[in-house]
Amino acid sequence: MSLSGLGDTGAAQPPVPALFPAPDPPASVPAESSAGAVAADALAGAAGRGRRRSGSVRPGSAHSGTPDDEDAGRQLVFFGAEAAEPTVADLAGLLAGPGEVVRMGGTARLSVRVDAAWRVHVLVAELALRGLAASWEPTEDGKHTVRTSYTRVLKPLAAAWLHGAVKRPPAVLHLTGRRLRLWVAAAGTPEPPGGFLLGLGEGDPDSWDALGAALAAAGLSATLLAPAEGGPAYRITGRRRLTRLAELVGDPPAAAPPKLWPTRP
């Protein structure tokens, strides 16, 4: 079921492989464009300045944080979600979580399975902001799969993250605010009384340590939870780290329940 009228156009972000491991330069965020009734609602939330509308879809080894990483993290508000223009490179945040990318010829397609309708709205909007058509469908276990069309625009992303058919982070991965925002939108969950979980791909255990290192480099040192402990996920705790996460990902999209989005303690 398509939620976006946007196609694979030349206006999409250029496929520059170097963008994927490197942080994006700061720039102003362009005004969003409308892409159908449902996508328009979600786009308003993704851009953080649209009107709220009422028609939401309602389908039925470990890394521990240390105080030292907070000083490094303070430098990274410069790369917060509001500091840079949306680019296809940001989709690395989905692949850091449960997202998958596959290649076909000179094209690639990204997909991610999510557990709530609000995530569908937010992700379709975020993909539309980057010139990518997206569709969604329910899964047998009551979740939803969001996927793009096959497009040449995603080929560099696939090249950076795939080793053969296996998903693995690039050797150098910077988790900027926009990338973290997408990770939170796809698989972020608050953990009372004072934690936040970032879900990981269940079939990607060889990637988990590298992602933990990338979180630590962003000032968000976290503890890896195994599947038997409620994961796979990284648990972020501590007032300073939770504040850092909230600063980096920005305000919640309109479609996201505020209580489920990172907030300053």
Rank of each mutant, 00 (worst) to 15 (best):
G142A: 00
G142H: 03
L129F: 10
T145F: 01
R152S: 13
R119L: 07
R147G: 08
A117N: 04
E140D: 11
S149W: 15
T151Y: 10
V124F: 08
S135C: 05
V153P: 00
L157K: 01
A116K: 04
E126V: 01
P156N: 05
Y150L: 15
A116N: 06
W118R: 07
K143H: 13
V153Y: 00
R147F: 10
Y150W: 14
W118D: 12
P138E: 08
K155I: 04
R119D: 03
T148Q: 12
S149E: 15
S135V: 02
V124L: 13
L123Q: 07
D141F: 02
A158P: 00
L157Y: 03
S135I: 00
D141H: 02
E126W: 12
A116V: 01
A116C: 03
Y150M: 15
D141S: 08
A125C: 08
H121T: 09
E140L: 07
W136E: 14
E137S: 14
R130K: 06
V114Q: 11
T148L: 13
K155T: 06
A116I: 01
V124H: 14
L123G: 03
H144I: 09
H121G: 07
D115R: 11
W118L: 07
S149N: 14
Y150A: 15
P138Q: 09
R130I: 07
T148G: 11
P138A: 12
A125F: 09
A125T: 04
V120K: 05
T139P: 02
E137H: 13
T148A: 12
L132K: 04
H121A: 11
H144V: 10
V114R: 07
H121L: 11
P156E: 06
T139L: 05
A116F: 08
L123W: 09
G142E: 02
T151G: 13
K143D: 14
W118S: 08
A125V: 04
E140A: 10
A116S: 10
A117R: 00
G131C: 05
H144G: 04
A134S: 14
S135W: 13
H144M: 14
P156Y: 04
T145Y: 01
R147N: 10
R152N: 08
A134G: 06
A128N: 09
A158S: 01
V153E: 11
A116H: 11
L129A: 13
W136D: 14
S149F: 15
P138V: 06
T151A: 11
V120W: 11
G142F: 01
E137D: 14
A133L: 07
S135E: 15
E137R: 13
S149C: 15
